[in-house]
Design a protein around this nucleic acid. Structure first.
Lengths: 336, 336
DNA sequence: CGTTGGCACTTACTTGCTCAGAGTGCCAAT
DNA sequence: ATTGGCACTCTGAGCAAGTAAGTGCCAACG
């Protein structure tokens, strides 16, 4: 049994490296298994019965099934440390980022470059953020800009029109009160916190205040909730023959925010690997996804990851995703 | 001569529609040219001598060269009005956009959807924007957030650390003075305008003010100058056989901001079409690019466009690009 | 009893070949 | 100038044969 798993590992590693179905002969030759091709064939037949490998056609070698990869990932792969040049690249890439947009943009490019796969990075979730500051800027007597700054570095802004002008002093008053109410609170708590906020103001002002509050809630909750960026789609084309049909359906799927968000899922700390058909989306049945959470405090406030062909180098990819997540978390903690 | 051009038009239209080299027989049959295949052959030979069409191989029909498309676009194509459903789609798509990010994101998706090509939209150029407002927000005694709001709807923000704290009143003072100096001025004029800005302050404050000014200049000029978003890359894969080799180099090129920005070029009002080898970038030699400027005031402050295979429906694509540009310009004028 | 070498069998891929189809260029006739 | 006719060229499909890879099974071996 132990030996059989050893053979599965060899098959996966060989297939990932050569991109060709692997037969019993090369397996005996290339890997340090001191058994004959015939024995390997017997074991392979068993592995095929277990559904871990298949033969594309009778006269071909074997390739791993999704289930085979799953067993490989769960039981056979060990973490592969990154090379020092890779570490250095990661180190260098984020230096000089000026704001969250910049950090996210650099991270996604970095991840694509290190893994040679398609990279996806989600912005820190507003749901999991707290209010650092709310600013109200008067652009004209009846036109305000609201700026909501979250502790995760996210900055949302919105312009709104008032039906009647508001005085500078009333504005300043509102700004102060807004911040003393909301600062440090979870964005998700804002609806409750600001429910009776307008009561603090004179009847004349209440209508405007109500408008402001509703826009704040819209910014914080209703809309724009999750943002996600993607990079390295050209890597898909490089692996084109890996995809059953063509890259088209995959590219198509990756253009839909909804799909991406479902891929990333709820931010959780541990690393997740979804292989081929384990994915809900049919268009992604020939791809695997590796995701992990990240966040300035060590707690996951967002998810990042990569997507590539099922036939990918899981150990290396997983450690790269992990390393980038750790690094960006640390960077966010220090800099933003 | 007139007839020869008629034949070129027929070739281009037929080839774009059928995606197959077009021979003299079908040309005589399908189009209303009342001349025989033999005559057409003679004219075709002439067109080939002029470099407007070529034969992929001896026993095949003719296809237009880049030069052939060029002549078609310049002299033979007439503007093709959009269908009413298309107009309605454009109309509907932008309704409900809340800020510039939203407008740009929707526009690029819209353009990709209408043209079935890859769409590119540039954010309004900061160079061509003026200051609407500068806001200084105190996040902590030594930490400020600067928000620069431009008349084009662009909002840039940056967090900075001061070496020594600044009082609320000094801050308010700086905010007022900053705005009275800068408001309405071109961003490109800021370096001159703010050159001696710190002189307005006490020696103790000058160091902090200088930091603030330098960050403003960085936001306005040095960095982040141009932003560009892209959508519809999956459309490339749909046209895959159109590309000599594969879509890979094209996708690769489209991942580089620099390439995109060069594609879009300086924002100018009129529509530009670059066909195949007219492009500098070698990776894009099998693609054509249609761009045009847009902007809230009617003046072009940014560029948008599409990129697709050289064999594309130029008249329809051009009118779609034009329509979207006009529509987004009007929308920006009214809403942001 | 597990392991191994041998061997027949299956299948895909390559090569070489023929043949039909499409399209042209050229020439002579109108 | 235009046209019909015709020989010529090239591609792509279809077919057959040979080759290579890899397997499953069986009998022999330690």
């Amino acid at each position: 049994m132990e030996r059989r798993m050893e053979i599965l590992r060899a098959i996966v590693e060989d297939y990932v490296a050569t991109h060709e179905p692997v037969g019993s002969k090369v397996l005996a030759a290339r890997h340090g298994l001191s058994i004959s091709p015939a024995t390997i064939r017997n074991e392979m037949a068993a592995l095929e019965d277990e559904g871990l490998i298949i033969q594309p056609h009778t006269s071909a070698g074997r390739i791993p099934t999704d289930l085979g990869y799953r067993v490989f990932v769960d039981r056979l792969s060990s973490v592969k440390p990154l090379s020092t040049p890779e570490r250095r690249a990661i180190d260098k890439f984020l230096q000089g980022a000026v704001d969250l947009d910049d950090v996210v943009a650099r991270t996604v490019r970095l991840l694509a470059q290190v893994t040679h796969q398609v990279a996806i990075v989600q912005y820190p979730s507003l749901k999991r953020s707290s209010v650092r500051h709310i600013e109200v800027i008067s652009l004209s007597p009846t036109r305000l800009m609201l700026v909501l700054i979250a502790d995760t570095g996210r900055v949302e802004q919105r312009v709104l029109d008032l039906v009647s002008p508001m005085s500078e002093s009333a504005l300043a008053d509102m700004r102060t009160k807004l911040n003393s109410e909301a600062q440090g609170k979870k964005l998700s708590a804002l609806p409750v916190i600001l429910e009776a906020f307008e009561k603090n103001f004179t009847p004349a002002e209440q209508k405007s205040v109500r408008t402001v509050v509703s826009v704040i809630l819209e910014m914080a909750i209703e809309r724009n909730e999750e943002r996600v960026v993607i990079s390295g789609t050209s890597n898909l084309a490089r692996h084109a023959p890996d995809f059953n049909e063509s890259v088209h359906p995959v590219l198509e799927a990756l253009e839909e925010q909804v799909v991406l968000l479902r891929l990333l899922g709820e931010a959780v700390d541990e690393m997740k690997v979804r292989i081929g058909h384990e994915q809900e989306d049919k268009k992604l049945h020939s791809t695997s996804v590796i995701t992990t959470g990240y966040g300035p405090t060590g707690e996951a406030v967002a998810t990042l990851g990569i997507i590539g062909p099922t036939r990918m180098d899981y150990p290396t990819s997983m450690s790269a995703v992990g390393a980038v997540a750790r690094y960006v978390s640390r960077f966010l903690q220090e800099e933003i």
